[in-house]
Amino acid sequence: MNAFISRARETPPVPDLMALELLASAVLVLDAKGIIRFANAAAEDLFEISVRQLVGVHASSLFGHGEELQRSLAEAMTNQFAAKRQLMDIERAGRDPVQVSLTVVAIHGQPWPVLLELREIEQQLKVDREERLLDQAQANRELLRNLAHEIKNPLGGLRGAAQLLEAELPDPSLKEYTQVIIQEADRLQTLVDRLLAPHRAPHIVGDVNIHEVCERVRSLVLAEHPRGLKIIRDYDISLPEFRGDKVQLIQAMLNIVRNAAQALKPQIKEGDAQITIQTRVTRQVTLAKRRYKLALELHVSDNGPGVPPEIRDRIFHPLVSGREGGSGLGLTLAQTFVQQHEGLIECESRPGCTVFRILLPLL
């Protein structure tokens, strides 16, 4: 609120400028001399300095090779273009330069003649990747749901026929074969039920403390692996409660931590397996094409061998597993439950370090 008031004091009362606060991209509004007269909240985050430090300085001083921007500003002032896009490097004290996509927009008939819109190249690639993941996950869910329903009905008929046949068999030794049919039908039925589980279970929303979820999962996994596995807690206790389905979130996180523990079997035998659960607050996050001021960032990391490269890009796909005998549904279901909370799961992996990152909106 204080930052908003400071902007109002330092900027003439032009109502259109206030709308720029709602944009996810960083925006700077310049006067005819190239001096910054307005900066939105996203610009503060990008440059990592306050609006008071931004307003009043020449825009070119914020960038490496600022002379390129000066030329573009001169062209904008003389109406040589309506909008021009270029790549620039942001200079930040004590940090490596950050490459951004900079759009110079000439504004006609307004008090301030030039607007700059900036997006981090890496951030834009990340947003595009997230959108692809969401679309792909939705397509996978629809495919699985339709496929499960198509399998379910004939599967019940197959099992029933095997039971009737078993009752009519004159030789008891032949029942061994009907039992194989019945048992395999039951196994497939269990698989189908797991595929349909996220769509059947009601979404029960209540107040959720993420650390209660973490502690429940930690105790369950340690009970399954009482020796050789260490689970480290790194919690931000200032995190607020949020509205969500506690049961679904426990299941999602349990699937991820169990997956990590299964990948750590060689390290568990040697006694040096380690999983770290970390919670943090992150700000100004875009999830499912929506911008949130505040989000929960939860990391589950392990010191295992890493995800095999051949399935690294497909680990959230259904029926894809990196271990023998795995169903390939654990991470798929985890992703579904997190996405039902408008969140996102990402994975980065290399030998010796695999990190699953869960983002959940708070505000």
Rank of each mutant, 00 (worst) to 15 (best):
N2T: 13
T11D: 01
P13L: 15
P15K: 00
M18L: 11
L54T: 01
L54H: 09
H65I: 07
L73C: 10
A82E: 09
K84H: 14
Q86T: 11
D89K: 14
I90N: 00
R92N: 12
R92F: 09
G94L: 10
R95Y: 06
V100S: 12
V105P: 01
I107S: 12
W112K: 04
L115S: 10
L118F: 05
I121F: 02
L125I: 06
R129F: 06
R132Y: 08
Q138C: 05
L143E: 00
N146Q: 09
L147H: 10
I151E: 13
G157H: 06
A161V: 07
L164W: 06
L169N: 06
L174R: 08
Y177Q: 05
Q189G: 08
A197G: 03
P202M: 04
V205D: 04
I210A: 06
E212V: 13
L222P: 03
A223H: 14
I232W: 04
D234F: 02
E241G: 14
F242R: 12
G244V: 04
D245H: 10
I250Q: 08
N255W: 07
N255P: 02
A273K: 01
Q278M: 06
T279D: 09
R280I: 03
R280E: 09
R283H: 08
A288D: 09
N303S: 03
G304D: 04
P305T: 01
L319V: 00
S321G: 00
E324S: 12
L333V: 15
A334Y: 07
